[in-house]
Design a protein around this nucleic acid. Structure first.
Length: 178
DNA sequence: CGACTTTGACCTGCGC
DNA sequence: GCGCAGGTCAAAGTCG
């Protein structure tokens, strides 16, 4: 059935062609991985929020991960208000399905065709009240088996349902990254 | 009937 | 200023 293998990849740069050439210079995020299960996946993200700078991880077997691509969230809204940029976390997952069940409930609010990509990008928002987390899901043109998921923001609530699937993903991640 | 998806329109930022 | 691309809104449709 599902056949996930987890990639982590840079999000904001050009689509990864073959492999990313980032080194494990800073292993902050790396270490944080070990704490994933306690808080759920976005708990991990929140842990990573403590890492100020961009830290990229890549390991030879094509897993890569990027933290810290930042994005405007409040731009264009209230004038005079300082632009607040939420960190974005993108990662690639090799999967037959676009939607990875990470245990949170998401409502789709948009879909756009993306330039240089024959697959559309889908936009989701967390349906939990007061939770402003968004994610984008996109399949790579160059490798249809790879789904790029970009999370934006951090969940302020616990995971909503048990996620055997995701546990599986996480376990793979930990195998790969340790 | 509520929650969610679909989809075209609209808004904004950016490069030329 | 214009056009393009990315991101969001919201009305209508679908589903359980």
């Amino acid at each position: 059935m599902e056949n996930y293998s987890t990639y982590f990849s840079s999000s904001s740069s050009t689509p990864p062609t073959s492999s990313l050439t980032l080194s494990m210079a800073d292993s902050h995020a790396y270490n944080e991985f070990q704490g994933i299960k306690s808080n759920g996946f976005l708990g991990l993200m929140s842990e990573m929020g403590g890492v100020p700078a961009v830290s990229n991880i890549d390991v030879p077997q094509s897993r890569s991960f990027m933290v810290g691509s930042e994005t405007d969230v409040n731009s264009g809204k209230k004038k005079g208000e300082k632009k607040i940029r939420k960190p974005r976390y993108a990662f690639q997952t090799r999967s037959q399905v676009d939607i990875l069940d990470d245990g949170y409930r998401w409502r789709k609010y948009g879909q756009k065709a993306v330039k240089n990509n024959k697959f559309p990008r889908s936009y989701y928002r967390c349906t939990h009240q007061g939770c402003n987390v968004k994610k984008q899901v996109q399949r790579l043109t160059k490798d249809e088996g790879i789904v790029v998921t970009t999370y934006e923001g951090m969940h302020s609530h616990p995971i909503e349902k048990s996620t055997d699937n995701f546990e599986h993903i996480l376990s793979q991640m930990q195998i790969y990254t340790s």
